[in-house]
């Protein structure tokens, strides 16, 4: 479904007029099949979020290509066939001036001709229930919700786009561990019910192992190794070995 081929990305370093560029992603290539859950792990600053932004089409790769069902990512790709997203920082992931309902409506109104208001109203109710929220939440503003509730709303909003794949960029990292577990369970359930696939960016190997089918280990903007979760114990590269050792001990 998603084919990433030799992608590079660099950012300008220092002031606006400086020539120096910092290479953030180097020669990234991998495949992603519909419905699978791919974990992307790596230490802070290794370019995971940057890769995520490229996959979402918010930014363009400098060289190489990202093909989504044969089409370039980042074009006018409203509607299904695209990737939706849940981000890390729940304090800014919903517009503070929007109610929960408006936030979800935003992604319902895309790529479809205007369905009737009542229709959407019922849909919002269904989505809220789907992610384990009380339908009364619909009129609340984000500052009136807890972090876990906001992340649930964000998941509902991502599910509402009916995209087959959701990219979660550290979506659970800023939650406390019991809420993390609840959200992970929710994601697992949605994966089974809706046949959703995830690209799960995190630096928490345990969370990744819990939910992912395959795990991609990144280091300094390069792919170190891609392993399936069941074979996580016999990784090849020394860096990945060291990383796992640290988690286990």
């Amino acid at each position: 479904m998603l084919i990433v081929d030799r992608v590079d990305k660099s950012y300008r370093k220092g002031g606006f007029f400086s020539r120096e560029r910092q290479q953030v992603l180097k020669n990234i290539s991998f495949h992603y099949e519909q419905g699978e859950c791919l974990g992307i792990i790596g230490e802070s600053g290794c370019g995971k979020s940057t890769l995520g932004r490229l996959l979402l089409g918010i930014e363009k790769p400098e060289s190489g290509s990202i093909l989504l069902k044969g089409k370039k990512a980042g074009g006018n790709r409203a509607g299904s066939g695209s990737i939706s997203a849940v981000f890390q920082d729940y304090t800014s992931s919903i517009n503070p001036y929007f109610t929960v309902e408006q936030a979800i409506m935003e992604s319902l109104g895309i790529g479809r001709d205007r369905s009737s208001r009542r229709d959407n109203h019922a849909k919002v109710d269904r989505l809220l229930k789907h992610v384990g929220l009380d339908p009364h939440c619909r009129t609340k503003y984000p500052h009136e919700l807890s972090g876990g509730q906001i992340q649930r709303v964000c998941i509902a909003r991502a599910v509402a786009t009916e995209a087959p794949c959701i990219l979660l960029d550290e979506a659970i990292s800023s939650l406390d561990s019991s809420v993390q577990m609840q959200v992970l369970e929710l994601l697992k359930r949605l994966k089974e019910i809706d046949k959703l696939g995830y690209i799960f960016i995190t630096h928490d190997i345990q969370a990744a192992a819990f939910i992912c089918d395959r795990i991609m280990i990144m280091r300094n903007g390069q792919i170190e190794e891609i392993v399936s979760t069941t074979q996580l114990m016999d990784v090849q590269s020394p860096y990945a070995k060291k990383m796992l050792q640290m988690v286990i001990s």
Binding site: R53, L56, G57, I58, N76, R77, A78, G79, S82, I83, S84, A85, F87, Q88, D89, S92, S93, I94, N95, F98, A103, E106, S107, I110, G111, C154, R157, T161
Partner: peptide
């Protein structure tokens, strides 16, 4: 740079 703006961008708005 807020995340809700990023999300809207992913919707293709």
């Amino acid at each position: 740079d807020a995340e809700y703006v990023k999300f809207s961008k992913t919707l293709g708005i």
